[in-house]
């Protein structure tokens, strides 16, 4: 394979990789805004992880309980 073909493949590969990541990224963006709007998940409540961060306060989403539910 000569140099020029290699460079052409490189160029196309790069374009399609970027296109792929672009689609994944904007789909993710759309999905989180949609989940917020439909009430499936409230992302904004996670700000509380900072404002209420003392060790004896109740966790926002209990981890242990979740694991128990699964099992």
């Amino acid at each position: 394979m000569d140099q020029e073909i290699l460079l052409t493949i490189q160029g196309y590969a790069k374009f399609f990789i970027i296109l792929f990541v672009f689609i994944v990224f904007y789909s993710y963006a759309y999905s989180i805004y949609k989940r917020q709007r439909t009430g499936e998940r409230d992302y904004e409540k996670y700000s509380k992880l900072v404002l209420d961060d003392s060790l004896d306060s109740t966790p926002l989403e209990e981890r242990d309980r979740l694991e128990k539910k699964k099992s």
Binding site: F25, Y43, E44, K45, S47, V50, L51
Partner: peptide
Amino acid sequence: YYFLPKESGQNIFSYKLSVLAFWGLMF
């Protein structure tokens, strides 16, 4: 993202934007 909200007592303007900006920056 920790110290400004904590010191000011304010919620982050948009937690969703913080997550999106993270992945954008990573890529």
